[in-house]
Amino acid sequence: MTASTTAPPMIRMASVQKHFGPLHVLKDIDLEVPKGQVVVVLGPSGSGKSTLCRAINRLEPVDSGVIEVDGRPIPQEGRELARLRAEVGMVFQSFNLFAHKTILENVMLAPVKVRRQPAAEVRKSALELLERVGITNQADKYPAQLSGGQQQRAAIARALAMRPKVMLFDEPTSALDPEMVQEVLDVMTGLAADGMTMLVVTHEMGFARKAASRVVFMSEGEIVEDSTPEAFFTAPKSTRAKDFLGKILTH
């Protein structure tokens, strides 16, 4: 771990607290994601893992604590925050593709509007991205005309179009029909293999085993375990993790 002493981690959270009314959803969260790592966040629903993911680009403001991206604390709402968000890719459970724009326009929007890159150039790289996620032939369709799996791959391409330093995935396969999960996971596995720094909230144990550098297990707003996938799946330390794995792996 000598590299981590020289370069700042891509994501650093320290003593992060967050309440939703009386509910304490993030309890004193400390987490570092070094450059190039793929961290998979597991946990039962309501454990705060989505909130943790959304806190990193401040879609969910936190009550207190430090959150840094690439060594810089995330700013307050405004121009600086928009600039930071442009460098952090995000993929949502419900895809959230812009419904009134074609797939190609979805991918092109942010580079043109935010980065002010010339449209012709953006179009070329957008088509390359669509090819990378395997939906070039859907470029001129509207989101509603695509399957869930295709929509989510388009959403990944849209996030990648900003050439982000890090990608956040908030349950990217939870809204998909089972037969479409794999095509999305394949794209994500490819990204991980290319060295993208990723934080992935998911229920896909197969993906965690195969692609994760680390597994973080959350329960009731706390990080309960932080270990290698190997160690987590074969020898979980906490009873909560054992319970969770028992429930998931028995059916």
Binding site: A82, L97, L109, A110
Partner: peptide, 22 residues
């Protein structure tokens, strides 16, 4: 849907761009 504006925010669009383009 809220998710539309959220996706736009996550891409770095500002308030005016989110309203105008999305």
């Amino acid at each position: 849907p809220v998710g539309q504006a959220e996706a736009a925010r996550a891409l770095g669009l500002n308030f005016g761009q989110i309203l105008g383009s999305v």
